[in-house]
């Protein structure tokens, strides 16, 4: 069980986790909070969809628009 993480704190850690390796303590706190919080589980899934989208967009792994030139995404 997490000691003091709020939902807002978990969003900060999820963001930090893309920029640095989280400490074992942070990971344990995060896991503890996520286990008992359906709202944060949903938010985490949303962030995963967002992060995957950003990666694909910035690496050109996107479908081409069917018509016209210069309209691919």
């Amino acid at each position: 069980m997490s000691r003091t993480l709020s939902c807002r704190d978990t969003t900060v850690l999820v963001s930090d986790g893309r920029d640095r390796r989280l400490s074992l303590e942070e990971l344990a706190d995060l896991r503890g909070h996520l286990t008992g919080c359906v709202r944060c589980q949903a938010a985490r899934e949303q962030f995963e969809i967002l992060f995957r989208g950003i990666e694909r967009y910035l690496h050109g792994d996107t479908p081409d628009a069917p018509i016209g030139r210069g309209t691919d995404v």
Partner: peptide, 18 residues
Amino acid sequence: ALFDDDGSWAEPKSHWRG
């Protein structure tokens, strides 16, 4: 506005799929 004073989610619940 997304959070209550105690840092819990205050935004309406929503479910996404890719």
